[in-house]
């Protein structure tokens, strides 16, 4: 199977502070990869490096077969990224925000308009599309963020904390939507989150990052099993996760 993201020994230091250390990842086409870890574990830094927005201190990365530090612009043409707490131009309407992103992506006006209408329908924002983005609720903003990511018709989507600050219902529909992207359109998804319980339901594989290091990786069942070491029953990812950190404290 084709790999979409591949990193070997990826390392990033901000001055003396280590953000990501020796990260080796391989994400295959079409899978939903959960990139998990507590706040400040280095998830966002990894995303920045994958998009060529910051230079790795050491190591190599390859996204869609391209090197981010050389061809960041090429990569960003087919990779949609929603940063954590994504912001919008509050004095523009939701639709205008989408149009601006479409223009930045050099999408022809007509095609963009068709796509935007379909997307607004999909993320359930058709009625509020002409309201100012500043008036949107948290959930609407997050959905608008997803629509923005999809405007460029990406092959890979990177979502940083897409469920943060949403109500339970919102979380449910968001996760469902993400899952749909992968099953219906075959889009590869890198999902970063510290909310394990939510995310584990839709991920094919997860990687757990702690203090810049990848401490566990694999399918959820396997991970839980590996940590169990013969004990009876299945563990949820959260338990696996807590065990890892408890073990370290002890």
């Amino acid at each position: 199977m084709e790999t979409v993201i591949e990193t070997t020994g990826l390392t990033k230091f901000y001055h003396e502070i280590k953000a990501v250390e020796d990260l080796t990842l391989s994400i295959r086409k079409g899978e939903v990869y959960g990139f998990l870890g507590p706040n400040g574990a280095g998830k966002s830094t990894t995303i920045l490096m994958l998009l060529g927005l910051t230079e790795p201190t050491a190591g190599r990365a390859s996204v869609l077969g391209l090197d981010p530090s050389r061809s960041g612009r090429e990569i960003k043409k087919s990779v949609g990224c929603m940063p954590e707490n994504v912001g919008f131009y509050d004095d523009m309407t939701g639709r205008e925000n989408l149009k601006y992103i479409a223009r930045l992506n050099d999408i022809p006006e007509q095609m963009a308009n068709i796509r935007i209408e379909t997307l607004l329908e999909t993320v359930n924002l058709s009625e509020s599309a002409d309201r100012l983005a500043g008036e949107y609720s948290r959930g609407m903003r997050q959905r608008l963020g997803i629509a923005e990511v999809m405007v460029k018709d990406p092959q890979l989507v990177i979502l940083d904390e897409p469920t943060l600050g949403l109500d339970p219902e919102g979380i449910g529909s968001m996760l469902e939507f993400i899952k749909k992207l992968s099953t219906e359109r075959g889009i590869t998804i890198l999902l970063c989150s510290h909310l394990l319980q939510q995310v584990q339901t839709i991920c094919d594989r997860v990687g757990i990052l702690d203090q810049g290091r990848l401490v566990a990786e694999g399918r959820i069942e396997d991970l839980a099993g590996g940590y169990l070491r013969g004990e009876e029953g299945q563990l949820s990812l959260e338990e696996v996760y807590l065990r890892h950190f408890k073990g370290k404290e002890a």
């Binding site: 090429e74 940063p83 912001g87």
Partner: peptide
């Protein structure tokens, strides 16, 4: 402040 800078930088522009 509006967190739009990182989003715009994720688009294929220099």
């Amino acid at each position: 402040r509006g967190r739009t800078l990182s989003k715009v930088l994720c688009q294929p522009i220099y």
